[in-house]
Simulated assay, not measured.
Amino acid sequence: MLNVIIVDDEEFARSSLYFLLQENCENVHICGIAKSVGEARELLANFDVDLIFLDIAMPGKNGFELIPDAKDNHAQVVFTTAFDQYALKAIKANALDYLLKPIDIDELKETVDKASKMIRYSDQETDKKERLKNLSTALNEGAEIRKISLPNGQGYTLIGLNEIIRIEADSNYSVFHLADREKITVSRVLKEYEEILPENQFVRIHKSSIVNLNYLKEYNSRNGLEVVLKNGEKIAVSRRRASIFTEKVKLYTRLTSEK
């Protein structure tokens, strides 16, 4: 049984999540509901909380300010947010659980099941702090994502985007080919990373390939359109993606020459 608290400043959001959990998640016990970070801290002081459903954008203190308290109480956090697409990219890039409002029942069930499993394991604290710091910086400063967290089974591996040479699809997995590192295989599909990564730097050139333009050496049409990377690898560009690829290269060249 998971001890859960809900933290949200909107009454409708609080009550709807409460009823969704009550009706669909038998292994959840709701200890309390809070309208603010201050009220949530009181609940954490009085209950042994396993899981927090936490809104981010609240008046006064935002949801991130509750994170140290959650960590001290060994509670898992799931963000509930109506944030825009950019914010969702930042959250996904840091491998943090979130539910997009209005909350979907199936996604809620999946999140609760995942939280049950994660509670048996604890992320390395340094990794957790770094991921939250990356997320907070990206959201508060509107900065472009510079690091990404890759789930590795026991926790997460933090890598800089400039370490990624290319990403290769392998069925329902994505294989990251990294500079000066061994490959990392992640149990997520390539499309998820296509949506997260900065589109002015990373281009999907084939149904099974995303390349980092920082590592592009040349492209040619000798054997159909193909790219040659700085490590010598040659990768085909699909006919359907060729025009988009060449436009992205032109934009990338212009942007890098302006720096």
Rank of each mutant, 00 (worst) to 15 (best):
Q76L: 15
R41Y: 03
R254E: 12
K35R: 12
D48E: 15
L21Q: 06
R241G: 04
S174Q: 07
D113V: 09
M118T: 03
L255R: 10
I56Q: 01
A45L: 09
I52Q: 02
M118Q: 12
L96F: 12
I145L: 11
H74M: 13
R188N: 13
G155S: 04
Q76K: 15
I91W: 01
A70G: 07
M118N: 08
L213M: 14
S221A: 15
L51G: 03
E226I: 00
P59N: 11
R14F: 05
Y156W: 06
S122P: 01
R166S: 09
R241Y: 05
D127A: 06
D97N: 10
K128A: 09
E65Q: 08
N172E: 13
V227I: 09
F53P: 01
S15P: 03
V228E: 05
V112N: 04
D84Q: 08
E192Q: 15
T111D: 03
K259R: 12
D113K: 13
Y121C: 06
I167S: 04
F83M: 08
V49W: 00
L229T: 00
P59Y: 01
V49E: 01
A75T: 08
N46T: 11
N27G: 12
V112A: 04
L150P: 12
I164S: 06
K128G: 05
Q201V: 10
T137D: 03
V189K: 11
E42V: 07
V78Q: 03
A143F: 02
F176T: 03
R254V: 11
N73D: 07
K191D: 11
E130I: 12
L213Q: 05
E144M: 06
N152D: 15
L99W: 11
V28Y: 03
L100M: 07
S15T: 07
V211C: 07
E218I: 01
I145C: 08
L150A: 11
L190A: 08
R14T: 04
D123M: 13
I30T: 09
L213V: 06
N231I: 06
H29Q: 07
S187M: 14
Q154I: 14
A169F: 03
L100R: 01
R222V: 14
Y86C: 05
V211K: 00
I244T: 11
T246K: 14
V7D: 05
R131K: 15
I205W: 02
E194S: 12
S238F: 10
L51E: 02
T126V: 14
L99G: 01
M58S: 02
K92I: 00
D84Y: 02
S122K: 09
Q22C: 13
E199S: 15
N152F: 08
Q76T: 07
S171P: 02
L139Q: 03
I33N: 05
A57F: 11
L2M: 10
K114L: 15
R188L: 15
R204L: 05
